[in-house]
Design a protein around this nucleic acid. Sequence first.
DNA 1: GATCACTAGGTTGTCTAGTTATATAGACGG
DNA 2: CCGTCTATATAACTAGACAACCTAGTGATC
Lengths: 109, 109
Amino acid sequence: MAKPAPLLQGTLDLIVLELLRSEPTNGYDLAQRIQAVSRDVLQVNAGSLYPALYRLEERGLVKAAWKETDTGRRAKVYSLTAAGRKALESQRAEWARFAGALSHILKRA
Amino acid sequence: MAKPAPLLQGTLDLIVLELLRSEPTNGYDLAQRIQAVSRDVLQVNAGSLYPALYRLEERGLVKAAWKETDTGRRAKVYSLTAAGRKALESQRAEWARFAGALSHILKRA
DNA sequence: GATCACTAGGTTGTCTAGTTATATAGACGG
DNA sequence: CCGTCTATATAACTAGACAACCTAGTGATC
């Protein structure tokens, strides 16, 4: 297994917002999902994820609610706010622009 | 004109290596090229570029040589070393992996 | 010949955000 | 009762990008 790429700074928010859009969940699960859905290419460690979630919450892009999991554990479930959905759209667009420009540079082989 | 996206941390090296591969040049010109070839999507700050060039030189990925431009100005012309070409290949691959994974996440709309 | 714009290289200080390491605590299996 | 998994959290460190400067030479314009 190739070692997971370090997350490019700035992309974690986008990933988190996107995953929360498709389904609200907690931090721990989010980390698992990121790894799973990227087929182990991406990996986020807890020390990056939790602070990122706080930042998003402070900015009003996500909201948190303590809930019980089906196994009886407490978990802080995050979901997108309206502002979060908006931010997701603009971050998606920004990523598309950036990735497009970079791959254009790389393709002029 | 949309304002240029901030460079994602870690991608500047890749861009620089790629542009130097296709043609050795100096820092100032490099900055212009990045903007031009990305159609103004990408833009590098001098305060980012010069330190980046030093780092690349320290790591032995590029080498510098003072030359005179055709207009009689001194300029530090950077070119890729063999190690630089190797590093470029692996950074291209890493970018492809990362961008692929991320766009995969975003496409499961 | 003063002023301005452009080429060219550089530094400093600040801030964001990701990494590693560590801690806590409840649940569950053996 | 011990280890492992779930789950959250924080502190210390670090890389690298940014804004805001500075120097100096060239060439045009007024």
